[in-house]
């Protein structure tokens, strides 16, 4: 198969690679940089990022967003979703996003509620 069946652009065309191999290495470098940022943040834990924003620490939001970014590039470039039809992309991504977001919402709200109930003092665990 010739290389021209692969879409060789990442970052919305900002970076265009000559061949599929060089794109793979490019994505590896990008994923490594993101992982290094995550690890450094996890070790340094800057005080500024420890403040709560929308119910979680800012640093945790950064971790989650960086994870989704990594997930996007793994799925799009390593799993070749970029080269698939938009129908297949949508069937995979929308299904997962919808079901997982629903699951996350339901269970985290419930977990939070149970915490509140126990915290209000109906149960003592400190004995």
């Amino acid at each position: 198969m010739a290389d021209n069946t692969h879409k060789l652009e990442i970052f919305r065309g900002l970076l265009k690679f000559r061949s599929n191999q060089s794109k793979i290495w490019g994505v590896l470098i990008f994923l490594s940089i993101v992982t290094i940022i995550e690890v450094v943040l996890g070790i340094v834990k800057p005080e500024v990022l420890m403040n709560i924003f929308l119910g979680a620490k800012i640093i945790n939001w950064i971790f989650i967003i960086l994870t989704l970014v990594k997930a996007y590039y793994i799925a799009w470039d390593f799993m070749h979703l970029r080269d698939e039809t938009s129908g297949l992309q949508a069937s995979v991504v929308i299904t997962l996003i919808f079901l997982i977001a629903y699951l996350v919402f339901i269970l985290l709200v419930e977990g939070n509620y149970i915490f509140d109930v126990m915290y209000e003092g109906f149960v003592s665990w400190n004995f």
Partner: peptide
């Protein structure tokens, strides 16, 4: 995601 969300549930339940 079932596993990870269940983990999140237990963690929120014992957040302190």
């Amino acid at each position: 995601s079932g596993f990870l969300v269940a983990y999140g549930f237990s963690r929120f339940k014992n957040i302190d």
